[in-house]
Design a protein around this nucleic acid. Structure first.
Length: 867
DNA sequence: ACGTGTAAGGT
DNA sequence: ACCTTACA
């Protein structure tokens, strides 16, 4: 079946074309009988052979090994019709994809009972779901219930074989055999002792999971690819589907020494200066684009992993269409396209744009270091080096500069997987091991896809029926609290009103991963919250009418609890353990970071309607218990005579506490709530205003933490950030109450200076620019026209392309529109009054807490102005 | 295609 | 009153 045929009747969004040829005449793949240790990277269904095809990385040779599973694994779905009745349904037995039926038993967690079901086995994945008039559709139309038909074949295969992507295997006599790492039994016993208060079930699971984190990750041989395409319109990226213009440059950079650029000779384009290209980069000139692509495809096919930045949407997509136009046959192109990806027959394509665009990666793995998901912004933030700056459009560049530009992009792309000793590759492999997703899927899916697959795997492993979203919802789709924010589904966290002022010696205690701890300790899961048992109804969640099961351990509680405990009890400690060699500590730090990503998202997905195990009462119960825990702790702190000055979600700020009272509180929480409460940090002092989520604290070390203040926000103009930073420097010096008087004088000078420089126009337009991201395309701002959109519209008018995700820099000017993009504004146009107001609100947030008023400071400044 | 709560600046 | 962004 061709791609086109399928797209015509595609209606099932999740399904993709799974059928394609492997090992074409041009690119032979290796399917050995025996191998040494190889790492499982990917599983695909091969339509050509009707079998699962596994891609394994052989580190000893640095190549990909391909292996067909001949054991006859087939796709299937489940139905409640008995086998004989299934055969009687018109169109089933005669269906071209029908294979056979089997009677099986599953455990239905939602109803807490065994069920007898029929497994309807098909010859190919599309016949189960996906295609119109599939077995699934026929059965549903006939009124039967169908389960597990939407799971893609290669994932089913991984579940059924209980494979772990990212783990080592060997092929022995034509069979796939897991390779076990040696684990010292005494060490395992030491670890198990940390779980001594948990059930045997939890300890058993721990034993199974430990190897995922203790097995080493090989260095994977890989190449990064970047291409440049000719375009007659400057700055307009050519459409990959048309692929009308030639590929003019290709850069290939690998981690095993390849540094090569291919360029197409063009008339009327100068060569330029070869020294613009870094030393050691090999340049090959081509007169024939076809020959150039042939060389590119050859290199791609020689590497097990190929990296791009945006290759799914652009580079590989363009190459596929372009190669066809140049007369390549499909068999001569190592690339193939699915609905939203570009994959490789010969290896694994990692599109780093998609991986780094993953919100969880952005926020939890890299602590929000990059905000924009462009190669330039990510590389700048993580590698300290951005893209090459160009002075003219790509088609007009002299050849060597074009080559250098393209080379730099490929080098940065490779660099993103190499910094901190291959951190990103290690993370990817760890995520694969936890989620059980293949490398291709992992780097393209979001956290909800990862968690979904992890949960499905654990269901199949235990012979639990994977529930249908509608069944969860109809049984437990109720919430009983009201959200504070309009339009939200349930109530979230508690934020205390801060006690405004300067507070010295403040101890901050917080619950270590509060929500995951709650999920574990309160046994929360979609099957245990509002479970079917009468006798559990009295086990109520505080502030709600939900109850929790007493009879069965919740699967979510088990999995989330395990991941949390592994991170908190083991890997965070190992990462800091001074008795371990540096290299080992570093690895454990990667492990705890990987776990963090899953843990932090484990609560949110249950409140996301797009998650297939969506269960609002689980999410609602989690936050309700979180509020209960922080409230009880607050009460206890007050009972102990502690002064709590602020708290948010999972933390309490305690002013000048005796240390034994703090440890009493911590012990109490452990005993009474069974949630770990820790001293998070100690502030030399904290300044609080009346505003929540808004404060400045100076740690004992002298480092300053700023939360939520305008001076730190990304959209604040640079001149204000600078002035704010100066203010922070002064505050960091303050050690006691007396120091403040001196500090206040210095602050006056800063504010005054800022004001004067503004008045005398001694800031550049860039310094004055507000930078705001366009969250959607310009034409979708219908309800209102915010300032950054107005500025963007002006840019479009003068022919400057603007799209969603771009950061618009604008200044406030006098006149009716009020704003101009920096590119179009002049310094004498700026609206001084507006800027003064911004100076005021930025500083006020801090001055407030210091007992100073901005007006007093600025009037002093204005007086000085007269002198 | 994780969640809700808060602040601020705008239309 | 509502929209938008950025942050906790």
């Amino acid at each position: 079946m061709s791609l086109r045929d399928y797209e015509l009747y595609e209606e099932d969004e999740e399904e993709e074309v799974e059928e394609h040829e492997y090992g074409t005449a041009e690119f032979r793949i290796e399917t050995p009988r025996e191998t040494g240790v190889c790492y499982l990277l990917s599983v695909t269904y091969s339509g050509a052979s009707g079998k699962a095809l596994l891609k394994l990385y052989d580190p000893s040779r640095g190549i990909m090994v391909f292996w067909y599973d001949n054991t006859g694994h087939k796709p299937y779905c489940l139905t409640n019709l008995p086998p004989s009745n299934v055969l009687k349904v018109p169109g089933v037995a005669s269906h071209r994809g029908f294979d056979h039926v089997e009677e099986i038993e599953k455990y239905d967690l939602l109803h807490d009972r065994k069920v007898r079901l029929t497994k309807v086995v098909a010859k190919d994945p599309l016949s189960v779901g996906g295609a119109p008039n599939s077995l699934r559709d026929i059965l549903r139309k006939h009124g039967a219930k169908v389960w597990e038909a939407k799971i893609r074949y290669h994932n089913c295969y991984i579940y059924d074989r209980q494979l772990i992507p990212g783990m080592p295997y060997r092929i022995v006599e034509g069979r796939l055999v897991p390779v076990k790492v040696h684990m010292d039994e005494k060490e395992v016993e030491d670890v198990l002792r940390l779980w001594k208060d948990d059930s045997p079930e939890e300890r058993e699971m721990l034993r199974e999971w430990l190897p995922l984190f203790q097995t080493p990750v090989p260095v994977i041989r890989r190449v990064a690819i970047d291409i440049e395409v000719y375009s007659p319109i400057p700055d307009r990226v050519p459409n990959p589907k048309d692929a009308k213009y030639p590929v003019i440059c290709v850069a290939m950079v690998s981690n095993d020494g390849l540094r090569r650029v291919l360029v197409l000779r063009r008339k009327n384009v100068s060569l330029g200066d070869q020294s613009e290209l870094p030393q050691g980069v090999e340049v090959k000139f081509y007169d024939d684009e076809r020959a150039m692509l042939l060389e590119l495809f050859k290199v791609i096919s020689e590497y097990p992993v190929v990296l791009t930045f945006n290759g799914d949407n652009f580079d590989f997509n363009y190459l596929w269409h372009r190669a066809l136009q140049l007369g390549f046959s499909r068999e001569q192109i190592p690339i193939y396209l699915t609905r939203d990806s570009a994959l490789l027959h010969t290896g694994v394509h990692i599109d780093l744009y998609r991986f780094f665009g993953n919100k969880s990666i952005q926020v939890y793995a890299f602590g929000g270091k990059y905000k924009e998901t462009t190669l330039d912004a990510i590389a700048e933030a993580l590698l300290g080096e951005g893209k090459m700056v160009l002075d003219r459009p790509i088609p007009e560049l002299p050849i060597y500069r074009l080559a250098a530009y393209c080379y730099r992009d490929a080098e940065l792309t490779l660099g993103l997987t190499m910094f901190e000793n291959d951190l990103v590759m290690k993370l990817i492999i760890l995520f694969m091991r936890i989620s059980k997703l293949s490398m291709e899927d992992l780097v393209r899916q979001g956290i909800s896809g990862w968690i979904k697959n992890l949960f499905y795997y654990e269901h199949r492993k235990r012979n639990y029926l994977i529930p249908e979203p509608d069944d969860i919802l109809s049984l437990k789709g109720v919430t009983v609290t009201k959200a504070i924010i309009k339009g939200k589904k349930y109530m979230g966290a508690l934020v205390m009103k801060p006690k405004a002022g300067v507070h010295f010696n403040v101890v901050v205690v917080d619950f270590a991963s509060l929500y995951p701890s709650v999920i574990k300790q309160w046994n929360l899961s979609y099957e245990t919250v509002r479970c079917p048992h009468e006798e559990c109804r009295s086990n109520l969640v505080p502030e709600t009418s939900h109850w929790v099961c007493r009879k069965r351990r919740g699967l979510t509680a088990l999995i989330v609890g395990l991941l949390r405990d592994l991170r908190v009890r083991l890997y965070k400690k190992l990462a800091k353990s001074s008795s371990l060699p540096e290299e080992e500590r570093e690895w454990y730090d990667v492990v705890q970071r990987a776990l963090k990503v899953f843990i932090n998202a484990s609560y949110g997905v249950f409140g996301a309607s797009t998650f297939p195990l969506y269960c609002p009462p689980v999410a609602e119960s989690t936050t309700a218990i979180g509020r209960y825990a922080i409230k009880r702790t607050l009460e206890k702190a007050q009972e102990l005579g502690l002064e709590v000055i602020y708290g948010d979600t999972d933390s309490l700020f305690i002013k000048n506490p005796p240390s034994e009272k703090v440890s009493n509180l911590i012990k109490w929480a452990e005993k009474e709530l069974k949630i770990d409460l820790d001293v998070d940090k100690v502030y030399r002092y904290v300044t609080l205003s009346e505003r929540k989520k808004n404060y400045l604290g100076v740690l004992e070390s002298g480092s300053v933490e700023i939360k939520g203040l305008l001076g730190k926000k990304r959209n604040t103009p640079e001149f204000l950030k600078q002035a704010f930073a100066n203010l922070i420097k002064i505050l960091a010096e303050v050690r006691c109450e007396r120091d403040f008087e001196e500090a206040k004088d210095k602050i006056r000078v800063i504010v005054h200076d800022c004001y004067m420089r503004l008045k005398n126009r001694r800031y550049s337009l860039e310094d004055l620019a507000f930078k705001m991201m366009l969250s959607k395309p310009l034409d979708q701002y219908i309800k209102s026209t915010p300032q950054h959109v107005k500025a963007a519209q002006q840019l479009v008018k003068v022919g400057y392309p603007v799209e969603a995700g771009d950061i618009i820099a604008f200044v406030k000017v006098k006149g009716s529109t009020g704003v101009k993009p920096v590119q179009l504004a002049r310094i004498d146009e700026i609206d001084e009054e507006k800027y003064l107001a911004h100076i005021e609100s930025t500083f006020e947030q801090v001055l407030d807490a210091l007992g100073m008023s901005f007006n007093e400071v600025i009037s002093g400044a204005k007086l000085l102005d007269f002198k």
